[in-house]
Amino acid sequence: MTNNAACISILQLSDLHILRAPEDKLLGINTEHYFHACLEQALAGKQHFDLIMLTGDLAQNPCPESYQRILTRLEACETPCICLPGNHDDYELMQQILNTDRINCRKQVKLDNWQLISLNSRIPEEPGGRLSKEELEFLENCLTENPDYHALIAVHHHFLETKSPWMDTMIIENSRELLAIVSKYPQVKVMITGHIHQVMDVKTATFRVLGSPSTCFQFSPETTEFSVSDTAPGYRLIELYADGRVESEVVRLPRPLTELQVSTHGY
Rank of each mutant, 00 (worst) to 15 (best):
A44I: 07
V190H: 00
S227G: 09
H156K: 06
M94S: 00
H195Y: 10
C77D: 03
I192T: 15
C63H: 09
E173M: 07
D24V: 01
A154G: 15
S248Y: 06
V202D: 04
Q12L: 11
A205R: 09
I29W: 04
V250I: 15
Y34S: 08
R255H: 15
T72I: 08
S118L: 13
N99I: 09
D243F: 10
S229R: 02
N104G: 06
C77A: 13
S229C: 14
V199M: 02
L119C: 13
I52D: 01
L27G: 01
E125F: 14
I18H: 00
Q108C: 10
H195L: 14
D148V: 01
V209R: 01
P186C: 07
Q218E: 05
G266A: 11
E40N: 14
L260A: 06
S66F: 04
S9Q: 15
F159K: 09
P147W: 11
P221Y: 04
N87E: 12
L131S: 03
T204W: 06
M170L: 10
P233L: 09
M170D: 10
H150N: 13
L11A: 02
F207L: 03
N3R: 10
R255C: 06
N120G: 04
K110E: 04
T2H: 14
Y149H: 12
Q198S: 13
G129N: 01
N113V: 11
D168K: 01
D112A: 13
G211D: 06
L178K: 06
P221D: 02
S121I: 11
Q47P: 10
E75N: 03
P256C: 05
H265F: 07
T2F: 08
F217C: 02
A59M: 08
M167S: 06
K133W: 12
Q12V: 08
A232I: 12
T264D: 15
C38Y: 11
E125S: 12
S132G: 15
T55F: 07
Q68W: 01
P124R: 06
D90V: 04
I82S: 07
V209A: 02
I171K: 13
V155E: 00
D201S: 12
G28L: 09
E78V: 08
R236G: 03
Y149Q: 10
E177V: 14
G266S: 10
A242E: 14
E32Q: 13
T215K: 00
V188E: 11
T2G: 14
I196W: 00
E135Y: 09
Q187A: 02
E249L: 13
T2V: 15
Y235M: 07
V190F: 05
Q198T: 04
E92W: 03
I196K: 00
H197F: 14
A42K: 02
H158N: 13
P256I: 11
A42I: 12
I29V: 15
A37P: 11
